[in-house]
Design a protein around this nucleic acid. Sequence first.
DNA 1: CGACAGCTTATTGTATACAAATACCATTCG
DNA 2: CGAATGGTATTTGTATACAATAAGCTGTCG
Lengths: 224, 224
Amino acid sequence: MSRASDRAYNHIRNMILSGELSSGEQIREEALADLCGVSRTPVRDALRRLEAELFIRRNESQRSFVADWSLDDLEESFQLRAMLEAYAARRAASRITWDQLARLRSHNDAIRQAITVSAPDIPKFLDHNRQFHAIVLEAAGSERLSGMLAQVTEQPVVLRTARQYDMENLKRSHYEHDELIIAFDHRDGEWAAAVMTGHIRRAFHAYAAAHSSDTEINRTDEAA
Amino acid sequence: MSRASDRAYNHIRNMILSGELSSGEQIREEALADLCGVSRTPVRDALRRLEAELFIRRNESQRSFVADWSLDDLEESFQLRAMLEAYAARRAASRITWDQLARLRSHNDAIRQAITVSAPDIPKFLDHNRQFHAIVLEAAGSERLSGMLAQVTEQPVVLRTARQYDMENLKRSHYEHDELIIAFDHRDGEWAAAVMTGHIRRAFHAYAAAHSSDTEINRTDEAA
DNA sequence: CGACAGCTTATTGTATACAAATACCATTCG
DNA sequence: CGAATGGTATTTGTATACAATAAGCTGTCG
């Protein structure tokens, strides 16, 4: 992460995610170079990556703009993620090792500890949740799949989703992980895929419920 | 395509697909720059794109190598493609316009004409086949999905697949397109998805059968 | 007024020089 | 003889200057 292009990448990405760069805004390479304290060369590198990840759009004459994501875009993103993670779970079921299974159990245990207290430890939940899903992906053993999933799994979105989780959702999340482990234990790919699909879909609706109450006129919490 | 980086991209990509650059071979930016007649800057651009598309791998110290694809890798690629194209078909079923449906019919008609002769016109088949699938993707209306599919749909592979099609496979391909159109007509996403899945899976097996016999032939050639 | 041509400015694309990192090789020491 | 070490060559990373292209503006003409 010490290379200038990586610093530029992270810097720009964070500026987009934090809203420092607003949606639809044009971004100029030289301005970003100044902001990141590097030259245009690594900035261009970073922009290409961010463009591939759809953080940035370019018009017909190659000017760059911050992409604006509608709720529909996000839902589609979650839908793709559900499909890909379900596929990963299906593959993982027949390939997962005992060691990987043990690590899944350990992380889900940590998640249980993080939420079975009066004030749930969200950062701890997030960290072990991330590692849990990383192990499933590792067990699936497909680099191409990993790359695609990275494109639709924005950790900041996951974070905002988790922040919106009530205790009920947190418990369900832990329970679903548990069921996934049991499906893996039985080497039942279809079961694992089904559980994973539901797991991601529920996450989307939790996110959407919170997001729409942000956007729209006050809307009392309803069952997610 | 007039920009130097695009020329470099196509040039390098073709060299990889034609075997001019062999699997596992290290590639140096300057050498490619000379071959393409441009400087290293656009070559680096092109390499980043090819790396994202898994044509190229880089080791821990950033040296680039031509990726070597096993038959397993290819199968996984086809599997992902089947899943994504099925998803596209499912989405398209509820969004497709009458105009798009008409264009699908027209292209599949052209395909029928290309193959219902004694010597099938493969280039014509390929062209209309490509456009057929492009329209389904257009009807699905998801840029992210389009981008992902581009990553797993290498036209040269499609070409080699089609070259291996016997008349039976060509007819089946046309028939499956026809069934897809009927499913769209009924706005039946699940049907469309199922047809598409089979369509791609069959294509993989046609390719795999031809590829394994290719490999044997190559081995014989090398021995001789 | 409106539209359009031509100029000016802004922005991206490319080439090149140099810096940094890494691999390769030879030499030495145990 | 093998392993470690140092220096050299190779390769990639970054900065910068310049070229090409597109946008914006202004003034003129219909």
